[in-house]
Amino acid sequence: MRKILFFTILTLLVFSLIACDNGNTNLKANTISETKLTEREQAILTTTANQSFIFDFNVDDKYKNVDLWVEKYESGKLVGKVNDISTEIKNKGTIIFTTSNTIEESNQALFTISVHNDGSTAAGSNQETVPKDYLSIVSGSNPLDNASITDQMILASICYSSSEDEVSTLSSDFYRDADKHMDELKDYEVVYLLRSEFK
């Protein structure tokens, strides 16, 4: 029942985002931007998801598909994919990544990724066991604003740490060139990265 309610609210939010157009009407071709949410949209997301990340993209005929996947790292080492989808795209669209607890006070989370484009939505979700004994969780997103689409972009991150020291989000350098900054992931017990590839 909770999954049905979550997907219903997520679908309503997607249509709300599309209807409002979120001020991203100036997206250039083959670019992606972090979506600027209204206060109402933020309130809706807060009641349905623990973490949420939303991006708008605009592509020309050069790009026909987008692949999205969430990678899981433990102590800096890639252990696999949590979730992935692939869908056809055309013109403008929206990418949404959310997590929510499946049962209150449990360490089970539902990871959902979706793409709304050309009047349809492609979505995938997967239940994941997240760390139970973490002291802090930090999340961040690529500070995109009309950024040119590149190969295998990292769009968002969720990092779990059991360190008693202050923990910060991944650096903006990490999002710009992850290969050179992968050592940042060693500071966390578990990291989830949302990646995209436009083809």
Rank of each mutant, 00 (worst) to 15 (best):
R2E: 12
I4K: 12
I4H: 10
F6G: 04
F6D: 12
T8Q: 13
L12A: 11
L12F: 14
L13K: 04
L17A: 06
I18R: 09
I18S: 08
A19W: 09
N22K: 08
G23S: 03
N24V: 09
N26K: 11
K28Q: 13
I32V: 15
E34V: 14
K36E: 14
T38M: 08
E39W: 15
R40D: 11
R40W: 14
E41M: 11
E41I: 06
Q42L: 11
T46A: 14
T46F: 13
T47Y: 09
T47D: 10
F55L: 06
F55V: 03
N58G: 01
D60L: 00
D60S: 02
K62I: 07
N65S: 02
E71V: 03
K72D: 00
Y73N: 01
Y73W: 05
E74A: 02
S75L: 04
K77F: 03
K77L: 03
L78T: 02
L78Q: 01
G80E: 01
K81S: 03
N83Y: 00
N83S: 07
T87R: 05
E88H: 05
N91M: 07
T94G: 08
T94R: 13
I95H: 08
I96K: 05
T98F: 13
S100Y: 13
S100M: 11
S100A: 15
N101D: 06
T102H: 07
E104Y: 13
A109P: 02
F111D: 10
F111Q: 10
I113M: 13
I113V: 15
D118P: 08
T121H: 07
A122W: 06
S125R: 06
N126L: 11
Q127D: 10
Q127W: 05
P131K: 09
D133V: 02
V138L: 04
S139W: 09
S139Y: 12
G140Y: 08
N142E: 10
N142W: 12
N146F: 05
N146D: 15
N146C: 08
A147T: 15
Q152M: 14
L155N: 04
L155Y: 01
A156N: 06
A156G: 04
Y160V: 01
Y160E: 03
S161E: 01
D165S: 04
E166Y: 13
T169S: 07
L170H: 09
S172L: 11
Y175L: 12
Y175A: 12
R176A: 15
A178V: 13
A178L: 03
D179N: 08
D183G: 05
E184I: 14
E184H: 06
E184D: 07
K186I: 07
K186V: 10
Y188W: 08
V190C: 03
Y192I: 09
L193I: 07
R195A: 05
S196F: 01
E197D: 11
